[in-house]
């Protein structure tokens, strides 16, 4: 038996457990015996049974009320890879035996007093934009007669990138012709990501001097320059035939090549991104790939 109560931003359910059913039947039996015999001691037992049932309902409600929570997805989520979602629960009063459920994964919080953090690894089989719409707090506390469930509507939106696995770029490209270029490409530039600081050398542009750090001697900011070896990945470079596998392969290859310092772009199923390097570029490619 399950009862449903709809509120503004949450839906509450009360389910009668097996133990609760036995309790209700016992109460009915004692009630029947009491009214038929007019035995006031049975009436006392019946009164306590009813009172405890009522009080357990009030305490069960109280046990789930006043809990606020945050669901914090990790910065990057990849398909078929467990992503640690951080759940922060807060409550002013002490709560017992609260079960947290998100995307079908359950965790028990024995005692919640103040703030409690837990990490739930979630795995997504599909890439693209995802929404976690429901967050459930459940508790059978105090007696396990009834299970109270509070389902919160929760529009947490995030992107699931394609599955990225360990891949060796050497299996795809002849590096003999490329490595020289890489070494050459690792020169100081101004268009890439900030890489660090070094001593000022004659000829360095004045705008690259890091004035705050140059109190004792002049220091220059170093940026990764655009790699001289640019690779634009396309369908022809891939070994897989299935689209989903191809997306995973191109994403993995992109990540591996970027990690090796290449300037990577893609031209794949209508997605055209010019070669580039750095974190932003990697995220850009993965985001575009996840939306194909």
């Amino acid at each position: 038996m399950k009862f449903r109560f709809q509120f503004d931003h949450k839906t509450s359910y009360i389910k009668v457990n097996r133990r609760g059913t036995i309790y209700i039947l016992l109460t009915i039996a004692i009630g029947f015996a009491a009214t038929n015999t007019m035995n006031n001691l049975l009436y006392i037992l019946l009164s306590f049974l009813l009172a405890i049932m009522g009080i357990s309902g009030i305490f069960a409600r109280k046990n789930l009320s006043g809990i606020t929570f945050s669901v914090l997805p990790p910065p990057e989520i990849y398909r078929n890879t467990p992503a640690p979602f951080k759940i922060i629960l807060r409550s002013r009063s002490k709560k017992f035996n609260v079960i947290v459920e998100i995307e079908g994964v359950k965790r028990t919080v024995s005692t919640l007093d103040g703030e409690f953090q837990l990490t739930i690894p979630l795995k997504f089989a599909r890439r693209g934009i995802h929404r976690i719409e429901r967050f459930t707090l459940t508790s059978s506390f105090p007696f396990g007669f009834f299970t109270r469930e509070e389902v919160y509507e929760l529009p947490v939106e995030f992107i699931v990138y394609p599955h990225v696995y360990r891949i060796s770029p050497e299996d795809y490209f002849h590096f003999d012709s490329l490595t020289a270029g890489i070494r050459e490409g690792r020169r100081m530039g101004t268009g890439g990501d900030f890489m660090g600081l070094r001593k000022y050398e004659d000829g360095d542009p004045v705008r690259l001097i890091h004035w705050k750090a140059s109190s004792k001697e002049l220091v220059t900011k170093v940026f990764s320059g655009p790699s001289s070896v640019e690779i634009v990945l396309g369908e022809r470079d891939l070994k897989s035939r299935d689209l989903e596998d191809q997306i995973d392969e191109i994403a993995s290859l992109t990540v591996a090549l970027l990690r090796s310092g290449y300037s990577v772009g893609i031209n794949f199923h209508g997605v055209k991104i010019r070669p580039g390097t750095g974190e932003h570029h990697r995220i850009k490619i993965l985001s575009r790939l996840s939306k194909i």
């Binding site: 009491a34 009436y43 009164s47 009813l50 009172a51 405890i52 009080i55 009030i58």
Partner: peptide, 17 residues
């Protein structure tokens, strides 16, 4: 908390005769 509620139930639960 259950005691006052039990007392109330005891008083109001229907009796016959």
């Amino acid at each position: 908390a259950s005691i006052p509620l039990a007392v109330l139930f005891f008083l109001i639960l229907p009796r016959s005769g």
